[in-house]
Write a protein that binds this DNA or RNA. Structure first.
Lengths: 211, 211
DNA sequence: CGAATTTCGGAGTATACATTCCAAAAAAAC
DNA sequence: GTTTTTTTGGAATGTATACTCCGAAATTCG
């Protein structure tokens, strides 16, 4: 829910089913392009071509480029959260933790280590550009961090970790290692950095393993 | 030394002392602007104003924007390497490791946690744009990683760490934690992520401490 | 069915921005 | 001191790109 407008007071023109389809086609196309080439280098015209729409449609569904960007951030965030939930909502063992790691690493390998993190790259490019965008990105990362923390808490509650383990700290450190690892993997075109970054973190978590 | 041109064969026009000053004024101005607002949003005109030069000067010293960008990458890299060397070249204890951490954290605090890593943000924005730029960024990160590795090797040789410690892995993991921590600190405008990311890594290194 | 609303096509606009050009001032070389 | 080279000023150009506008087709709604 949009906390700036909890009652949904803005009178947006209603969207037909067809309209909704077109709108999401635009968002998906924009998301892919912005992921591949960055936001600044992604032209509205590029998006139009990819989504097979005219410019009147573009501005029918989005007031301006910034609005489209906000939607792209939110789209990428939900995609990530959903994909990771499968692993994080059921973290009952170190095997499960390594399965999560494999999931992340495999994506990078499939992509030839190009592109980095769909959210991290948006973040780096956009944090300092606009307050609203900044806010959206910050919320996204909080949500992601939270889902990791919940996973670790679950491990703790299951008795896999001893009481010295601090899920708050570990979640933040894991997310940082993930982000930095993905950046270095992207730069080097080599899965090694993300593997080592995550493995080192998991090894550290292993030091809190209950015997 | 530029490995693509070890004998310096290219006939660049000689630079007068005044010319060199102007040239580096341009690079410094560009570096600051690109750090604050990103490369794409930094206009040649912006750089001209900040460096107090005319556009003929800009293109007298740099063939095109890309060439200026390459110089900015190299400038930021040497600044980082030099600043970190003071801490890393003499890593003789865990106190020294924490001093390095403090150095990194203090910079962020002084900057209100804005801007992130001067190299990391360039990397994220530019890796996928151009092969030459990509190469330059990759070399920069290798150099940085190497200086961290040497620091850790020094600790190992001094007998601070036991033989289970792998300086190669730890250096890469530390750099990843550093990059991810800085990104999250930038996003949250809060030093906490970089502190926790580095501290967690150092704690892990501590598990290799020789008793 | 007929009116209202939404979706779409595509030409048009305005501006921002990288780059070029011409010539003059300043400095270096001889 | 004259010639050559480098540095500088600033106007001009061309293109890329975000955004607007108008009317027509399609769809929804009563």
């Amino acid at each position: 829910m949009d906390m700036n407008n909890p009652l949904n007071i803005t009178k947006k023109p209603k969207l037909t089913k067809k309209g909704q389809e077109t709108r999401s086609r635009i968002i998906v196309a924009a998301a892919e392009l912005m992921y591949e080439q960055g936001v600044a280098r992604t032209t509205i015209e590029d998006v139009q071509h990819k989504a097979k729409i005219s410019s009147s449609q573009m501005y029918h569904y989005f007031k301006e480029k910034k609005e489209l960007i906000l939607e792209v951030i939110s789209y990428q965030t939900s995609k990530i959260i959903e994909n990771h939930r499968r692993y994080l909502s059921d973290l009952d063992s170190f095997e499960a933790l390594y399965a999560w790691r494999d999931f992340i690493v495999d994506i990078q390998i499939k992509r030839n280590c190009e592109g980095g993190c769909p959210l991290g790259s948006l973040a780096s490019e956009l944090v300092e550009t606009n307050a609203e965008v900044h806010q959206e990105i910050m919320s996204s990362f909080f949500e992601w961090e939270d889902s990791i923390r919940k996973g670790l808490r679950y491990m703790l509650n299951r008795g896999e970790l001893n009481s010295n383990a601090d899920p708050d700290k570990l979640a933040l450190a894991l997310l940082a290692a993930l982000q930095g690892g993905l950046l270095l993997t992207q730069v080097r075109r080599d899965p090694k950095p993300i593997i080592i970054a995550l493995d080192t973190m998991i090894e550290h978590i292993n030091s809190f393993k209950k015997i």
